[in-house]
Amino acid sequence: MSLMTMIVKMSEGLGKTCAIFFLTLLFSLPLGMIVALLRMSKVKVVSTITRFFITVIRGTPLMLQLLAVTYGPYYLFRANVSRNKLIPVVIAFSINYAAYFAEIYRGGIESISIGQYEAAEVLGYSKFQTFMRIILPQVIKRIMPSVTNEVVTLVKDTSMAFTVSYQEMFTIGKQIANSQTSFMPFVVAGVFYYIFNAIVDYLMGRIEKSLDYYR
């Protein structure tokens, strides 16, 4: 198999890799905010449960969570295993990343001084307005580097979808490596991930820069 065929074959799987990446971001970024707000809830029960949820998600491997979401329903209830593996994969990734994003959001929100809330109250802002117009814009600026970190990790973590037989780029690479007894597909995969992340890095850098006002 020529290098070109190899690259073409693996690019076909790249679409599926991108599907995991974009769908996970789409669901986990907002979900993370919900989790963060629940975690900071003044109702003790809610914050304790959320805290427990976060420790479970962060304390167990993503690979295990993928297996649990994909095959768990079958082993527990003899339910059918999903034919479209993208669904369980995106569910597992979104839950996992939401837990991490939640903690990043929380760190950002708690870093804003209490004085700003008081000032907003004096100026007649409602709680919702204070959060949306004053707090959140500052939080986003502060957490961008940490979010970029997670997003870059996500690109590489997509390769884990292999454990549940989702035929993304790295799985195809492994198939080729195996049938050709060649190491080349892994090199190609490495280059693909690097380029993907270089683009992510550039875009996140641009966003960070556009948020660079007040300086």
């Binding site: 339910a79 059918n80 999903s82 034919r83 037989s165 035929q167 799985t171």
Partner: peptide, 18 residues
């Protein structure tokens, strides 16, 4: 054709109708 990383997963997929 779906490739799994163990034959056990192949059979789980079969029994789970995937």
């Amino acid at each position: 054709i779906v490739t799994c990383d163990s034959f056990l997963k192949c059979f789980t997929e079969l029994e789970g109708n995937a």
